[in-house]
Every structure is written in C-alpha cells, then in structure tokens.
Write a protein that binds this DNA or RNA. Structure first.
Ligand SMILES: [Zn+2]
Ligand SMILES: [Zn+2]
Ligand SMILES: [Zn+2]
Ligand SMILES: [Zn+2]
Lengths: 143, 143
DNA sequence: CTCAATTTGAGACTTAATCTCAATTATAGA
DNA sequence: TCTATAATTGAGATTAAGTCTCAAATTGAG
C-alpha cells in the first residue's frame, strides 16, 4: 500500500493527486505488468474501482508514460499495449501470422550512452523488435 | 518502370497480379519512403490513380509487409506508419512531447545471427526505439 | 480473344481513442 | 476539522482508424 516505488506513489511524488481511479490503474499494471491493452486495464481496473472510466485509463496511462514509468509497445494488432518500463523489451514479430516471441538478450548500454550525449536525451527504456518470418510461415513464402 | 527491384515488380514475382492500384501504392512508397501513414499513402496514391480506395491501400500494405518489403513503425501517434524495410530503423522518442529523432548507428548483426538460429526465424529488418525525454522536456520533469 | 480467378471500390461497419463539461474529489491552508 | 480552490473524474458524444462485404471490374493464362 505504501510502496514508495509503486506507480501510484510515484504519481504523487510528481505532484499529481492520489485518487482511487489512478490507484486502480496502477495496481492493475503492477499486478499483471505485461502486454496490457487499455481495454484490459479498464476491465481489470473496474474490479478494483467499479466506476473507473475509459477516459481516466487513457489519461493515467499518458501520465505514467510521460513520467517514464510505463511504456507503449506494439504487437501487430490494433491497439497499443503497455508494459512497465524497466530497461528493454524485445520481440521477434512474424509479419505474416503475427506471432511474437520474447527474448532477453540485448546489449544497448553502449548505444544508450552515446545517444544520450549526442542528443541531450534522457533514455528511460527501449523497444527492440525484429521483423521477419517465423518457422511456420517461412516455407510459405515465394520470395 | 521496369525496375526489377521495385516494389511492384516484387509483387509480381511473388505471384500477385500487377494492377494499377498496386502500382500507385508502390510508387508512393518508393518516392516518399519515410514515415508514411495509410492516409497519406491514400492521398498521394490518388494523385497517381484517382479511383484508389482505402481498402486497397491497406491490402497492398499488408502484402508488402508480409513479403518483408516494407515495415510498420510507430511514432507515438494514433496511426501506423510504413517505411521501406532495409535493415534497421532507429528512433529516440520523447514520451512527453512526442518528438522523434532518427539515428543510424546500431550494431544488430550479432544478435540477428543468434536469434535466427535459436528461434528458426528469418529476420528481414528491425526497429529500435529508445524512450525518454528530450532536451526541451527534460527540465520540466519533477521525477 | 475468352474466361476463371483475382482484385477492386464504395460504403457500411467495428473498434480505438479523444473530447466535453457538469459533478466530484483531493488537498493545502485557515 | 472545515473550507475553498483547483484538479480530476465519469458518461456519453464524437472523431478517426481500420476492417469487412459484395457486386463489378480487371488481369493474365491458355
Ligand atoms: Zn508466422
Ligand atoms: Zn513483450
Ligand atoms: Zn520532448
Ligand atoms: Zn524513422
């Protein structure tokens, strides 16, 4: 409840009011963490705070994204999805069937340092996606 | 017109019919190449082939994506955008104001080799995005 | 040419995301 | 504890992206 590293607490520290709807969204993100769409966050959030509205979900996601605490990813379907922003997130995405595989290995530290300096940019996290064809779809291709 | 490396030619090689609408879409992508949304492609394509329909734009983009010739990217706004798929595409994206900076440097070859083997995956291209705050937005942050 | 199979356009439709504004709520300060 | 004020919210309207349908048009093999 009083986890100072929690998303809700971080919102408060950043000067935003600590409201029940925001706490519900934060709790959902912390519990499930992975690849959540705004719709899923809304549904789960309403189990915690039934009056939660779609607009508030989007507003809270925007706030958390601006603070660098969560981050949108894209998995080849219609809606954005969010993950907690800790370091990197990495996928192999099949551009044919849409299958996505996660992997961990990625050494971006060097590049982060270089870019931060060159662009005066403060990097919170990154997304690395490789596009191509998976084992199943590979044989179906003509090219 | 008869560029065998052209997108339209590649469609034909892959066994699809070479139609005027597809040629229009291909031509737009080849001329402008960078960060085009389906809407923009539709508008420009209609300057070449006025009857071009939205559905055909999406259908052609899907075909070209499946063949690995173009690739969707995401720049923190509502719509997907497409780029020609040559190797990698790299951005620094400010999660506050949405500004995006391109950079070239990226050494993914090693990782591509490892992943291809491990997942039996055929990699065509990749997207590397770093999220954080740009020079202008950095001072505005409290956290 | 002819003709079967593919492809297309128009517009209906679905769904994601944004916007509006009156009502509610959090919090600083008395 | 009690206001007062500004921030935040929910409901639903609205906009916009993307998909689907099907009759008509087009391609390209034969
Ligand atoms: Zn696949
Ligand atoms: Zn993932
Ligand atoms: Zn910025
Ligand atoms: Zn770019």
């Amino acid at each position: 409840m009083s986890d100072l590293n929690g998303l809700a607490a971080r919102l408060k520290v950043a000067g935003y009011k600590l409201t029940a709807p925001r706490q519900a969204v934060a709790q959902v993100l912390e519990q499930e963490g992975l690849h959540l769409s705004p719709n899923e966050i809304l549904a789960r959030g309403r189990q915690i705070y039934p009056k939660l509205s779609r607009a508030t979900v989007y507003r809270t996601l925007d706030l958390l994204t601006e603070l660098g605490l969560i981050r949108p990813i894209y998995l080849h379907d219609a809606s954005q999805r969010y993950v907690t922003a800790q370091g990197g997130h990495h996928h192999l995405v099949c551009t044919d069937c849409g299958a996505a595989f996660e992997f961990e290995q990625c050494d971006a530290d060097q590049l982060v340092a270089t870019l931060s300096e060159r662009f005066c940019f403060e990097v919170h996290s990154h997304l690395l996606e490789f596009y191509g064809h998976c084992e199943i779809c590979k044989p179906n291709q003509l090219s």
